[in-house]
Amino acid sequence: MSAVLIAILVLLSLAVVFGLVLGFAAVKFKVEGNPIVDQIDDLLPQTQCGQCGHPGCRPYAEAIANGEQINKCPPGGQSTIEALADLLDVEAVPLDAEHGEESIKTVAYIREDECIGCTKCIQACPVDAILGAAKQMHTVIVSECTGCDLCVEPCPVDCIDMLPIETTLNNWKWTPPVPGIELIATDTGRTITHASNKEGTPS
């Protein structure tokens, strides 16, 4: 019996020692807040469009940190999902169509001779990118517009258009080369979509 007793005593003393270590660690290394939220927020496109079902990008970042799906951000699109998947070490999933589809980048444009100066769009703009005053025609500061299209719906005279950002010599981009023949049926997906909207490189 003494062997059992000794074993129990040894275990007990070990438990005491490690309990103390654990207690110390719990106090000393306590983590305040959740730094991951900032990192997630950094990856989100900051359009503040609310398509994810959260009022703004940061609330969505917080929701993701609490385990929400990462595929609810249409403005960010697949690249954002992949960046998030990379950060959170989860599998990248396709965009949830329920929240909208990824589309080309747009900016709001107010047809100024139709604007009646109601300021509704100014109130809707999350980044203060619309300039104007009551009874005065409004205009969009293009460089600040995130393309969230929140201003479109409130407009009583439907004078706001979401226009795709025009390609000029300054923002023109080289198209990715068509991946060679090594591409197989199962790894189509992204590369194919990228390749499909290009022209003229060697194929």
């Binding site: 900051q46 359009t47 503040q48 999350p126 080369p177």
Partner: peptide
């Protein structure tokens, strides 16, 4: 070299986008 040009472009565009989104965040 076509791949490099593409990658450089993308990196620059991403950086610009990052700047823009930071600005949007600040404004918001």
């Amino acid at each position: 070299v076509q791949y490099y040009r593409f990658a450089k472009n993308e990196i620059r565009a991403e950086e610009a986008e990052q700047r823009k989104s930071d600005q949007a965040r600040q404004r918001f």
